[in-house]
Amino acid sequence: MSREDALAGFGRSADQVTPLLDVRHLHHRFMLPDRRRLCRRGRRLQALDDVTLTLQRGDALCVVGESGSGKSTLARAIMGLLAVREGEIRYDGERIDQLSARRRLPYRRRMQMIFQDPHASLNPRLTLRQTLEEPLHVHFPTWSRSDVTARARSLMQDVGLNPDWGERYAHELSGGQRQRVAIARALSVDPEFIVADEPVSALDLSVQAQVLNLLLATQVERRLTYLFITHDLAVVEHFATRVAVMYRGTLCEVADADTLFATPRHPYTQALLESRPRFDDAHAARHGLRGEPMADSAVRHGCVFRDRCPYAMTRCERETPVAHTLTDGRRIACHAVEEARI
């Protein structure tokens, strides 16, 4: 199926397509408490710095980066779990970042989230049936009780859980089964867009394969769009149609998955791909990155990656790189790439 056919399937032609998600110049700062004085505000942490990103319907965008790079903050801002002060988030053409709780409700049905730790994201005092029925009561208040129950049962079947387990509690399930419940809960209200924050990181290898297969199959069956946060590059390479690489709150490089894995251009992306452990190459040399990300206070101007970057020059210290689009469609923020030094 060509791209045009795929778009036609959603009832619009290629030239007038609105991205499903359109994030523009998003900034977010956290105020950290002062170490020495209880009531005084301390330093600021720039969690998101001018993040611009679009997602088309049917994409599976993977966001990668190390801990503290702002991946989860981005997800929470998109889902409205965080107040956005600077920047815009549009969903299907509409601004959603400043909506009141009531106006936000329809979007909460269309956008759902799966969290990393299924032990923490399921209410321990609800049975599985209650967990799955609660969102239905909120979003479909006109449904009859039997409709709701039938829907909960069919959801459990869809995600590979025994539908007779409705009266069980989360603590009676294994990690993989719990993550299936979390997926079923996200799917219960028939969303178009799912944000999954490290959904397989807490799972064992064999269980991880089961859950990834379930996520892939549901994407095809229900024509879902995913924003998938992970730090596992093997998972990214398998799952993503597009990849966004984050470092210290900025987007370094956004590209189609094939392009990015074949020819990483941003020095951080290159370092990330090189540092992957490989199990098929015996003792393959792995190059880690020396050092740690620099202290927040040091980053006022310039590129946040410059202290660990092999291509850093004086310009990288003075001037913050602005993302530009290359001919192969990737967006990249790097002076060295711009100057054709990489």
Binding site: D204, A209, N213, V235, E237, H238, F279
Partner: peptide
């Protein structure tokens, strides 16, 4: 079951059940 063992976006070879 490793994602590297399957081409991108194809179902992974999963082992049913759990330990």
């Amino acid at each position: 079951a490793l994602p590297e063992m399957t081409p991108p976006r194809q179902p992974l070879q999963q082992l049913p059940g759990a330990m």
